[in-house]
Simulated assay, not measured.
Amino acid sequence: MTQAQATDTHPGELADVPGWFPPLDQTLFTWFLDQQKKAGIKGDLLELGVYMGKSAILLGHHLQDGEQFTVCDLFEGDAPDEANKAESSKSYASLTQQAFERNYLSFHDTLPTVITGPSSLVDEKVAPDSCRFIHIDASHLYEHVYGDIGAAHDILLPEGVVVLDDFRSEHTPGVAVAAWEAVLNRGLRPICLSTQKLYATWGDPEPLQEELLEMLRQRSDVGLSLQEAAGHRLIRTRSRGMKPPPFPPSRHYVEPVAASAPAPRVAESAAARPARPAPSRARRLAKDLLPPVITRAVRRARVKRS
């Protein structure tokens, strides 16, 4: 994982916000949230681990009337244990609550409810069976992810969707163990996999899978395959040059200045060329007086010199 660089400027577009949120996952987040709205599913939104706010900004855009959005992150706070402290110092040293709030408020009028502290606080702050969509992207340590999945199980509505980030990266084996353990032993049912994230539910995944397959098969910018594992159907997706879905610019967006067109080249006409000076009277007289043989010799000499 490369270190995303923080900035001190207001973002003009979502792409200006540092973070790891590729176009494929932006597309899948948007699709799942839109499907819930079409189906009339109401519920709150929750994100564990926000970094600079890139995915939180997109989630906040899909908040419906009467719903709450809660985010949780350590920010500059103390980690609950030494392993988590080392992880935060290595990968998220540039993260501050001020940077997150600046980025989020560039796109939204109000902040979500912010829990500053470890994700273990969430089940105390968020009511059971209240959320329709949860994004888990906090600690990568097994014990913490195990707890986050347990909290999500209690907080998520039966038909809700939970997304686990970094479930397959080589530097996050703790997430992989906790994620697949939840699938095998804790009733979590996969819907689809992207390069970075596992989308799942504790409800019935099949209706969502059928609708998702219908959407994906109409696109040429996504690779698609189906697999079976331990009795679960897995929809695997990967980007093929996918572009992010449209997203409103921030209040600080500045329209790029169009480059001025170069001045058209004007073809030089014969009339515009300077006229060759007329031969002098002495040259005309010499030409008339020289014998033809000498004139031809002079011409041949000129040709050789040229």
Rank of each mutant, 00 (worst) to 15 (best):
A83N: 08
K85V: 03
A86G: 10
E87S: 09
E87P: 03
S89F: 04
Y92A: 05
A93G: 12
A93Y: 11
L95F: 06
L95W: 10
L95A: 08
T96D: 08
Q97H: 09
Q97M: 12
Q98L: 11
A99T: 15
F100P: 02
F100N: 03
E101C: 13
Y104I: 08
Y104T: 08
S106L: 03
F107K: 10
D109T: 13
T110R: 15
T110C: 11
L111I: 05
L111G: 04
P112T: 10
T113L: 12
T116C: 13
T116M: 11
G117M: 03
G117A: 00
S119N: 10
S120H: 12
V122D: 06
V122R: 06
D123M: 05
D123L: 06
D123V: 07
D129R: 14
S130W: 03
S130A: 07
S130R: 08
C131D: 01
C131H: 02
C131L: 02
R132S: 13
I134E: 02
H135N: 14
D137S: 14
D137G: 14
D137Q: 11
L141Q: 15
L141N: 13
H144G: 09
V145N: 05
Y146V: 05
G147N: 14
D148E: 00
D148N: 02
I149C: 01
I149V: 09
I155A: 09
I155R: 10
E159V: 05
E159Y: 03
G160R: 01
V161T: 14
V162H: 01
V162D: 04
V163T: 07
V163R: 08
V163G: 07
L164G: 10
S169I: 07
H171K: 11
T172Y: 12
T172A: 15
G174T: 04
V175D: 09
A178V: 03
W180I: 12
E181F: 05
A182L: 02
A182P: 01
L184W: 09
L184K: 12
L184S: 08
N185Q: 15
G187M: 02
L188P: 05
I191H: 00
C192Q: 00
C192W: 01
L193Y: 14
S194V: 06
S194Y: 05
Y199L: 08
W202R: 02
G203Q: 05
G203I: 06
G203A: 00
D204E: 15
D204S: 13
P205V: 03
E206N: 10
E206H: 12
P207E: 11
Q209G: 07
Q209E: 02
E211G: 00
E211R: 11
E211V: 04
E211Q: 13
L213W: 05
E214M: 09
M215R: 13
M215S: 11
M215I: 06
Q218P: 10
Q218E: 15
